[in-house]
Nucleic acid binder design. Structure first.
Lengths: 366, 366
DNA sequence: CTGTTAGCGCCTTCAA
DNA sequence: TTGAAGGCGCTAACAG
């Protein structure tokens, strides 16, 4: 159950009779430093915490020297235990293989540096079960707050801060029934941007392709926005639209979905319609591009349009039009929100929705 | 200097006069559980550590209930402080934007789960300075060992385990003067595999493209292996070869390097030679592919061959031949090595070199 | 089988 | 300006 199964660990203690070079010289503690500097632990502690003004220059110099000589590093664990805060932030990521996550992570890290936190990164690899375990583990390490970008985290795994839970902020997706800060893309605007671009380019049969979206708010929002944008009064009569679910986690379900898509494309072609696919995110886009290439050859963009939310590094190489998210900002803001709550501010749950940016490439030349 | 700048943090303590719902109900401690269960802390501790056999069924049930009722989670920090081991492993990664790192990470995680460790992931974003800071930080959190895949870590930042340093294992690259375990690709064999493939396909002018390699052992090894493979007796007279450095961190240096490459390609064409580029890793390959596409259009593989070490997800889409590394195994093995050392084994430094696998695609059709 | 005691390394009153 | 003492949450001898 618990991750730390440590039964059966022989506590290999240094053999006093071994002629090895100074068997495992324990790291120096604050007491060692105090002794070395000829003073009490209190002064060392003061020094460590920057209360330099209350230390005589002499003592201060001795302490400095002692620390240097012993290569002393204060033990964060002990510090944390004592003061009740360890400067650890949990970051739960559903899928690090998705470039989006890595970019958000970069923003998170940079904010952590600025604010003095150490991010504890947990990668759930798209497994709901892992998410639960990691959340427990983070709790166990007493992180001061968590940033969550998960697939199946439930409200019950993450009690709202009011009821004794850890401060939490959600990235990209909400959790049903959980009243926490959320930061992510302005999905409605981003999708609208994409749809308008496709219409401008003359596509009149749009298919939104998305992973199962019932349980992921951002997917839900994007799908809904797609329907609204295409049903919009000014287009309603001229634009065909449909949604195709593509479950990338079920390899067996992918082929049928792609077949359905092919059928749709064939029909559209017969009608003389110009068809374009709107991928809800990068993983979907990759899968679609691979399929289209296999089916139509390298010239596939002449047959079908393709646009995607997310702008992975390979989009440029593949010539795919995208809607880029300000991922780093998203990560940065998440930490800022979290920091405020950790510091005690308790405003109502906030939501930060960042705008996406259209990057036009060859896949939507029309 | 230190990351944990925490001066100026108002310790916002709960206002006892606020009518808020039960101001921040502190997490239950072992004492709380003991009281709730009507027993002493020791029994609780025993329960937590799986010494169930020495507890009367009755006590055991009461403890179980108390824990449940209080939603108690043992504090890992306190545990670690006491027993001197916190089950934390540091993982220092030079660049998470490189898919290689993410894949290695997955192997690391899966091994950590199996062995009961919690990986503390640090992302240095290709900054040597970050690497140093993170290494210090890890030290400060008393991780039991570190897995290092860094750019500029020096021996001085990572004292060998014998002299009081933390157990360390290196991934993909060694550190000068540091006698630690290393796990990575069998570079010589992988490069040979690639060169032979290119020769078979009829290329007779090979250019190895690599980031600055003086300080990164794997790049050095690959470059050397390339020279050896091409100078090999049986090819020496028929194959032209060269090495081109491409420093991706210096945007200003990229264009000149690509120009040089272009010149080389032009000359080769004039001589009627069949030219192929051998990218030392995925980031280089991406950059090259982008350039070739811009220069020769989508049909670039008809002009130049391209092969790369690493097999990122976009390689399939771009149709680039690669030599795939068993990245997950690499990460897994790294943890295993580290675990053994943490457990006290002190064998001589080992090296695990895994074989690469050739994945042929359209970029080397000849 | 169960509880008491003494710290792990550090911070924090409190008194000198 | 300095130091001694107590305790954060937990484990590990010792007793009973």
């Amino acid at each position: 159950m618990s991750m730390g199964v440590d039964g059966g660990h022989r506590d290999t203690q240094a053999d006093p009779h071994a002629d090895a070079p100074a068997a495992a010289p324990r790291r120096a503690t604050i007491s060692d430093v105090a002794r070395e500097a000829g003073t009490g632990k209190t002064s060392i502690s003061r020094y460590l915490n920057g209360e330099l003004s209350v230390l005589s220059p002499d003592l201060r110099a001795r302490i400095e020297a002692a620390i240097e000589r012993l290569d002393y590093r204060p033990n964060q664990m002990a510090r944390g235990l004592k003061r009740g805060r360890n400067r650890l932030l949990g970051l739960l990521l559903a899928d690090l293989a998705n470039p989006y996550s890595v970019e958000v992570l970069q923003g998170v890290e940079s904010a952590c540096h600025a604010l003095g936190y150490m991010p504890l990164i947990c990668h759930a690899a798209n497994e709901v079960d892992m998410e639960r375990r990691y959340l427990q583990l983070l709790t166990t390490y007493r992180v001061e707050g968590v940033i969550v970008n998960a697939l199946g985290v439930r409200e019950s795994m993450l009690k709202p801060v009011g009821s004794g839970g850890i401060p939490a902020v959600l990235v990209d997706r909400t959790v049903d029934g959980l009243d926490a800060d959320v930061v992510g893309l302005d999905n409605a605007a981003a999708v609208r941007l994409g749809v308008e671009h496709l219409l401008e380019r003359g596509y009149d049969d749009l298919v939104f392709v998305v992973q199962p979206f019932e349980h992921v708010s951002s997917r839900r929002e994007r799908e809904a926005a797609f329907r609204h944008a295409t049903q919009d009064a000014q287009h309603a009569k001229t634009v065909a639209h449909a949604t195709q679910v593509l479950d990338l986690r079920e390899e067996d379900a992918v082929a049928p979905a792609l077949d359905a898509l092919d059928a749709h494309l064939a029909q559209a072609a017969k009608r003389g319609a110009r068809c374009a696919l709107f991928a809800a995110n990068a993983p979907v886009a990759l899968r679609l591009a691979l399929h289209l290439k296999a089916r139509f050859g390298a010239q596939w963009p002449q047959h079908v349009g393709l646009i995607a939310i997310d702008d992975p590094e390979w989009a440029e190489l593949a010539g795919i039009t995208t809607i880029r998210q300000p991922t780093r900002e998203i990560g940065y803001r998440a930490v800022e929100f979290l920091h405020e709550r950790i510091e005690g501010a308790a405003p109502a749950a906030r939501a930060a929705a960042f705008p996406g940016e259209l990057v036009v490439r060859a896949s939507t030349l029309g």
